[in-house]
């Protein structure tokens, strides 16, 4: 089993440290669900791992070898001004894969629709399909279901499971839904005030949290 080790790193914006992350092992074929309140550092952590922003030290976020390929769906993915199907095929010109994903995420009837005219939920499903077009060693998804209804969330979770079963990547999924974390997660990463406050197996960590911060968080969100 391939495992990638992340470095300890910090991130500071305008003199305020927003993240102080300790080292972490990310293994293939595992889904890591990142939970925590708004501003707890989840997205910053994800963006640094994805390479979208640099750490304070400006070094790689990984200790030693980094994943050969990293896929990343940001919190607000950009819908390119072209048809939905063309958006998918930008990532990889694989018509069969595009067809499969459009079907899985109920996007087939929107293939010719302009991507920037899709509704919030449709746009999120398109963005997910787009990032699932390629096999990645590490796939990072920043709240992919934030603007989705229950039906779309179910489709998304199904598509993610199939992607994991087929390509065996390490998946880092940021979510605000504890239920989703229970359904999908193998490992929980709990962020609190810019720190990786607690980690552990899922759902055990959610059943018996060790830190007061996670206990309070689960009382509120769980």
């Amino acid at each position: 089993m391939k495992t990638w080790k992340t470095e300890e790193f910090t991130k500071t914006y305008g003199g305020r440290q927003v993240l102080d992350a300790r080292s972490l092992d990310l293994s293939e074929d595992q889904i890591y669900v990142a939970i925590g309140a708004n501003g707890s550092g989840k997205s910053t952590f994800a963006r640094i791992l994805a390479g979208a922003i640099a750490t304070d030290a400006g070094r790689s976020a990984f200790h030693g070898a980094k994943p050969a390929s990293i896929g990343y769906m940001p919190q607000r993915p950009y819908p390119f001004r072209m048809s939905m199907e063309k958006n998918l095929r930008l990532a990889a010109d694989d018509p069969a894969r595009a067809e499969e994903l459009m079907e899985a995420l109920k996007l087939t009837n929107l293939r010719q629709a302009k991507a920037h005219k899709l509704s919030g939920g449709e746009s999120a499903r398109m963005a997910l399909a787009r990032v699932l077009m390629r096999p990645f060693d590490l796939l990072i998804l920043d709240e992919p279901c934030a603007s989705m209804d229950m039906e779309s969330t179910k489709l998304t979770e199904g598509a993610l499971r199939r992607y994991r079963d087929r390509y065996h990547p390490a998946i880092l999924l940021i979510t605000h839904s504890i239920q989703q974390a229970r359904r999908l997660g193998d490992e929980v990463l709990f962020f609190h005030e810019g720190h990786l406050a607690e980690t552990g197996r899922c759902p055990a960590t959610l059943e018996t949290p060790q830190t007061d911060a996670l206990k309070h968080f689960l009382e509120f969100y769980g």
Binding site: A50, P74, Y78, F80, L90, A91, R130, V131, R134
Partner: peptide
């Protein structure tokens, strides 16, 4: 910023990102 981050996340190179 949004275009670059999205394109990077899809695994696209700099040339293709610039074209986009």
């Amino acid at each position: 910023a949004s275009v670059k981050e999205t394109a990077m996340g899809m695994g696209l190179g700099r040339g293709k990102t610039l074209l986009l």
